[in-house]
Design a binder for these strands. Structure first.
Lengths: 206, 206
DNA sequence: GGCGATCGGTGACGCCCCGTCAACTTTCGT
DNA sequence: ACGAAAGTTGACGGGGCGTCACCGATCGCC
């Protein structure tokens, strides 16, 4: 943050942005430590040097900060996934690239995904924020395009998307738990499952 | 509740059981209405004619009642799933029976599964209680037996179990949302995916 | 640079939920 | 019939919740 920045954006805008980021950063740390259920707005605000009232100038609730975190994450992963799928020249590359990119991301950002599994109990929380849902939708659209181009049988794209999402998140859970499981092996497994599976899927009745 | 029951079990045992059930029943109703995150212990106890202190003679927290609900559900589904898989003479029957039974259960007990999807937001909560985990474990054991008997390639049973669980829960979500999706179609889809997929899965390195 | 307007940080406040516990009521055993 | 034990009750201190009146800092304007 240079003097030039301050001149350009104004002091007000500057602190607004930095406060928001301070809250988000504190939230990421606290959520990762205490889990979603146990953390309170007070815990988050105490991890910053702001007053409790300030929190509510930026977010309505802890759920809303959590959504902001999820959106931030989704916005980081989605372009990579999209790029991978667009670059794909074969259906195998499409599937393999998707899983490999996602699992790689999970491995290198375990803190974000640790929030989904509470420390002590087997408590999963997942919020499908608009950005996350948009990511699912992108996948569905790309699958429909694959159907259109004939590399994939004409099957229910919603169910296929749901299946890929379910497998991706559930194996991501294994990835976080099992140190011995490599990203490559996880991706190879999921890829083989879907490559072999889609050919057998029931064709759509039109 | 007859006089004979009272005689046989004693009044104390009788009210203890009925109080516990009253709390569980109230919890199921309240969780289904407000969602997991929004309901409080007070909401649950207010839905009974008991005092707030009484709640804590039966459960430590709302999480514990929720776990009791999940356990109850798991204990109803597991025997059906197990029976289906033991009866199966082919690998197709094994997979198909598992999915069909599970989806059928979800369709007919949507209230329980609605708790997993908050009304307004796309907020998922899942607690893998001991009974639920035991159900996953049963599936894994049965898969290992299938590998042993040679009807399935020697692939990572944990990943396969995770994949089936992921697909089952994610498609269950679609089943609750989409009225036009039939149990049969959902099961046929998941079955085909795995029947086609397992043959292509990477073999384990021993 | 000075000045009024506006913005936004602050923390105390009232509300409600939390989990506990001493007092009380009901049941049990003899 | 009566004392002991079990179990219920709701009031209580503790703390998180979201709000708001206050006030210092920033901005636009001359």
């Amino acid at each position: 943050m240079t003097d030039a920045d301050v001149k350009a954006r104004g002091k007000r805008e500057e602190t607004k942005a930095s406060n928001r980021q301070a809250i988000i950063d504190a939230a990421r740390r606290v959520f990762a430590e205490l889990g979603y259920g146990a953390t309170t707005v007070r815990d988050i605000i105490r991890a910053t040097d702001l007053a409790s009232g300030t929190f509510y100038n930026y977010f309505k609730s802890k759920e809303e900060v959590y959504q902001a975190l999820q959106d931030e994450t989704a916005l980081r992963v989605r372009p990579r996934l999209r790029a991978e799928r667009i670059r794909a020249r074969t259906f195998e590359a499409f599937i393999s690239g998707s899983f490999h990119t996602f699992f790689d991301f999970v491995r290198h950002d375990e803190d974000t995904f640790a929030t989904m599994r509470q420390k002590q109990d087997n408590f999963h929380v997942r919020i499908d924020t608009p950005e996350v849902l948009a990511g699912f939708d992108e996948l569905r659209v790309d699958l429909e395009a694959a159907i259109q181009s004939g590399v994939m049988p004409d099957t229910d794209p919603d169910l296929l998307m749901a299946s890929m999402v379910g497998v991706a998140f559930e194996i991501a859970g294994q990835l976080v738990q099992r140190k011995d499981l490599s990203v490559d092996d996880a991706a190879a497994f999921a890829t083989a499952l879907f490559l072999g599976g889609v050919q057998a899927l029931p064709r759509r009745r039109r």
